[in-house]
């Protein structure tokens, strides 16, 4: 009898076989994986430390230290430094995305994800979608700290909202770099180490904190093409002036290029991961 039942269940299963996940399944699975990541965040609230502490600390610290020297006063410096810190915190927050993804992948449950007939992108895209919440918190707190210190940008509600959105989009895009690192690095510490080496040059070799014309000429060339600079310029245009400029288009293009390069790399190395 059991042979007959076996035969039946095999026939039924073979009839249901699909060759690959459909786009709809991929979206639904990504959302499910984002749900899982949000559950984990709620149960481990320490995951929010970096996006809460850093905006408060760095905004105040950089403004009071560099404000007078760079712009003559803290208040005049805020329009320069707040967009810079927005980009910097987004970048730091997405470094944590990569580190946590690496940690997560060590766990047994990832063996199950890999054994399921599910989209290969969902286990990566899900947590990255959930981390949009973290970028949102970081951006909101940075702006709030700025306002508390006397930052009065001229972009209006629309400009500020668009600038805030751009920071989140940039954070999500850049997190693909770290997701890729997460899939190739040997440990979470390695992701963190390599992440630092990427983050520091990208944030400080930009005009996030200082105007670029005081830098040596060769450095100015790098600063000009640094994607973080593009994002900072776009955010300044949006938040400070309320203008949707070419800088915004450049920043979005930069984000798109990053995703187009690193998302396929990340998915490929995740699929091969032992």
């Amino acid at each position: 009898m059991s042979a007959l039942m076996a035969e039946r269940s095999i026939q039924a299963a073979k009839q249901r076989l699909t060759p690959r996940p459909t786009p709809r399944e991929t979206v639904s699975q990504t959302i499910t994986m984002a749900w899982r990541a949000l559950k984990k965040m709620r149960r481990n609230p320490e995951q929010f430390f970096d996006v809460i502490i850093q905006p408060l600390l760095f905004t105040a610290m950089f403004s009071y230290i560099f404000g007078g020297a760079v712009s003559g006063s803290v208040k005049d410096y805020l329009p320069i430094v707040i967009p810079g810190i927005l980009a910097q915190t987004a970048l730091t927050a997405c470094m944590a995305t990569g580190t946590q993804m690496r940690e997560d992948m060590e766990k047994g449950v990832f063996d199950r994800f890999r054994s399921l007939p599910m989209s290969r992108i969902a286990p990566l895209a899900g947590p990255m979608l959930a981390d949009v919440l973290r970028y949102g918190i970081a951006a909101t707190l940075t702006l709030a700290t700025g306002f508390a210190m006397g930052y009065r940008p001229g972009g209006g509600v629309l400009g500020i909202t668009l600038g805030w959105l751009l920071v989140i989009i940039a954070g999500w895009s850049m997190s693909w770099i770290f997701a890729w690192l997460g899939t190739i690095a040997r440990s979470a510490q390695a992701v963190q180490g390599i992440g630092m080496m990427i983050m520091f040059p990208l944030t400080f070799l930009s005009d996030a904190f200082t105007p670029k014309d005081t830098m040596p000429g060769w450095l100015q060339h790098f600063v000009a093409i640094n994607p973080v600079t593009l994002v900072i310029h776009a955010v300044r245009d949006l938040i400070n002036d309320g203008n949707i400029t070419a800088n915004v288009a450049w920043a979005l293009l930069g984000c798109l290029v990053i995703v187009a390069i690193f998302a396929p790399l990340a998915i490929r190395s995740y699929s091969r991961k032992v």
């Binding site: 076989l17 699909t18 899982r36 559950k39 766990k107 047994g108 449950v109 063996d111 199950r112 054994s115």
Partner: peptide, 20 residues
């Protein structure tokens, strides 16, 4: 992808999510 639809795997160490 087809194989994953035909096979259920129970690992040596429970492959379930610790935090859920």
């Amino acid at each position: 992808h087809q194989i994953r639809q035909l096979v259920g795997v129970t690992g040596q160490y429970a492959s379930v999510d610790e935090n859920l």
